[in-house]
Design a protein around this nucleic acid. Structure first.
Length: 427
RNA sequence: GCCGGCGUAGCUCAGUUGGCAGAGCAAUCGCCUUGUAAGCGAUAGGUCAUCGGUUCGAAUCCGAUCGCCGGCUCCA
């Protein structure tokens, strides 16, 4: 009989208290709890573990994030592609996933109707599609770098013990991109990615650090590739002034990588971005480009995500903000609270004006006393509550209550719209 | 996947030694016509996760499966 005892040890009472406070705070911010309270998403036992279903408000936040990031990527020379969710098993044999990753993938047979069946695999990553798109036409060194991005939903049969809300799901969407480039472009491309990491995390106020993972024992490629690639990663981090640690031997079997870990509002760290150098997949898929000497060379491929998984990043944001999203990301930015039934007409009129200005707005139409409407709106963490009664219908204004600041008095509709749009990176 | 725990109404939970399934909140309907964080009344809501076993009798005991939680391992 073996008895396992769990414990935790701290140097001082103060440290222990801080730990306990953090546990308590983490429980209050738990994205699974807030996700239900704010009607963002749900999980269903009958659907399967780790498969989130996004409700209208959750979908809205995710789409806003994507819309924003898409614009940022276009400005930085990315092109967007869309690739299938399934491929014939042959593709996964070429990529090596069939051999090395099989137990984590979903495969199925399909009846082709002529007495034969085909085996298909659901994608656990987006790389093959991007490789095939690259390989579809002859490339010149002048075409490089090609920055190919996709919000690609992938499926991985994660082990049952690790599935955890949105943080570790079996279906998730990566803000994925693959950069095809020449060896001498790796450094500047990595610099560009670190710049993007800094910009994106800055928007949410996240601090972060990095880890560089070097060549593992079981790996492929010649040492010159590993040295060049690893040095390019380290040099970029140094030049950007990103603090980093070296994780000896923790790289992917095909190349070294940078992992970014960010720190949330209560000091927890999360891995989000990853930047990987790859020489293997371009080879497997036979990718080439024509050099200035008109010889044929194989391009490098950089894999990178910035948010990582939209699911995980969404979960991190929910916990970081404790559900009180910044106004630009809030699923509902404004809720109109009519004082009595007779104010519904004016409330509807205000809503129409706000909708026309692109504000996400709802009217609280339940027949409840004021304080209850306010309490419920507060609980939904809506940034602005507009109280409309006789006074407001008369003046054409709205009584504004802020989520954090309370009642701030009357404002005109235009003033209110300006407040909502202030600081909106999508505006 | 492994170790440990858990699964009762939409949510949070009670349910005594195995003996009629409960509360609050949410929902629905009615009342109130409301001025900034929780009014009043009523109604409805359940194969006690699922399947099997023990028993005169199972939410309660046993087994399996599914799901969830904490940890390990893994990862975006």
């Amino acid at each position: 009989m073996l008895q396992r005892i769990y414990g935790t040890a701290w140097y001082s009472d103060k440290d222990l208290d801080a730990y306990l406070t953090r546990i308590e705070e983490a429980e209050k911010r738990d994205h699974r709890k807030i996700g239900r309270e704010l009607d963002l998403f749900s999980f269903h036992e009958e659907a399967g573990a780790g498969l989130p279903l996004y409700h209208p408000k959750g979908a809205r936040v995710l789409r806003l994030l994507q819309q924003w990031l898409r614009g940022v990527l276009y400005e930085r020379g990315y092109v967007e592609v869309i690739t299938p969710h399934i491929y014939k098993a042959d593709v996964w044999k070429i990529s090596g996933h069939y051999e090395n990753y099989r137990e984590n993938m979903y495969f199925f047979e399909v009846d082709e109707g002529d007495g034969k069946t085909s085996e298909y695999g659901i994608k656990p990553m987006n790389c093959p599609g991007h490789l095939m798109i690259y390989g579809d036409s002859m490339k010149s060194y002048r075409d490089l770098p090609i920055r190919m991005s996709e919000f690609g939903t992938v499926y991985r049969h994660e082990m049952s013990g690790v599935v955890h809300g949105l943080m570790r799901a079996r279906s998730f969407t990566q803000d994925d991109a693959h950069i095809f480039c020449m060896p001498e472009q790796v450094h500047s491309e990595v610099m560009g990615m670190l710049d993007l990491v800094a910009y994106v995390n800055g928007v949410f106020g996240f601090e972060y650090s990095a880890e560089v993972s070097t060549r593992p024992e079981k790996s492929i490629g010649d040492q010159a590739f590993w040295d060049t690639a690893t040095q390019a990663l380290i040099k970029a981090l140094e030049e950007k002034g990103v603090p980093f640690e070296i994780n000896e031997g923790d790289g992917a079997f095909y190349g070294p990588k940078i992992d970014i870990k960010l720190k949330d509002a209560i000091g927890r760290t999360w891995q989000t971005s990853t930047i990987q150098v790859d020489y293997n997949l371009p080879q497997r898929f036979g990718l080439t480009y024509r050099t200035s000497d008109n010889t044929e060379e194989q391009p490098y491929m950089l894999h990178r995500t910035i948010l990582g998984s939209m699911e995980r990043f969404f979960g991190i944001l929910i916990e970081h903000y404790a559900g009180a999203f910044p106004t630009w990301l809030a699923p509902v930015q404004v809720i109109i609270v009519p004082i009595a039934d007779r104010h519904m007409d004016y409330a509807t009129e205000v809503r129409a004006k706000l909708e026309k200005a692109g504000v996400r707005v709802e009217v609280f139409s339940d027949n409840e006393p004021m304080r209850i409407k306010i309490a419920k709106a507060q609980q939904q963490k809506v940034p602005y509550m507009l109280v409309v009664g006789d006074k407001e219908a008369e003046s054409g204004e709205v009584g504004v209550r802020e989520r954090t600041g309370g009642d701030i008095g009357s404002r005109s509709i235009d003033e209110l719209i300006a407040m909502v749009k202030d600081g909106d990176p999508l505006a």
